[in-house]
């Protein structure tokens, strides 16, 4: 129900403050999405879409932290004790 799917903004159709809409691509499938809640998002950005509304812009720099964090904790494990 709180599923929100990331997609890429391909175009912004109407840009008035009340009903900002655009086309968002989900792995190649285009859907019309309400962009009112993400005024900062522009064409090329990824947004999380829930119930027809983009609720958040995906921060591309932060996306790699899940992998950086994994490296960090692995190093931590290595320096802490040599378990192998």
């Amino acid at each position: 129900m709180c599923l929100a799917v990331p997609g890429k903004i391909e175009s912004i159709e109407s840009d008035d403050a009340l009903s900002r809409t655009g086309k968002v691509s989900f792995g190649g499938i285009l859907k019309e999405v309400n962009l009112t809640l993400v005024p900062e998002a522009s064409v090329g950005n990824y947004v999380l879409v829930h119930a027809g509304f983009a609720i958040s812009t995906v921060n591309e720099e932060e996306a790699s932290q899940t992998f950086e964090y994994l490296h960090q904790i692995e190093e931590l494990g290595q320096s802490g004790k040599s378990d192998k």
Binding site: M1, C2, S19, T36, H50, A51, G52
Partner: peptide, 20 residues
């Protein structure tokens, strides 16, 4: 109008636009 905070802005927009 069901949902958690995730859906609330979409539901709010519906009511707001209906009034407009």
């Amino acid at each position: 109008g069901i949902g958690f905070e995730t859906t609330a802005p979409a539901n709010a927009t519906l009511v707001y636009q209906a009034r407009q």
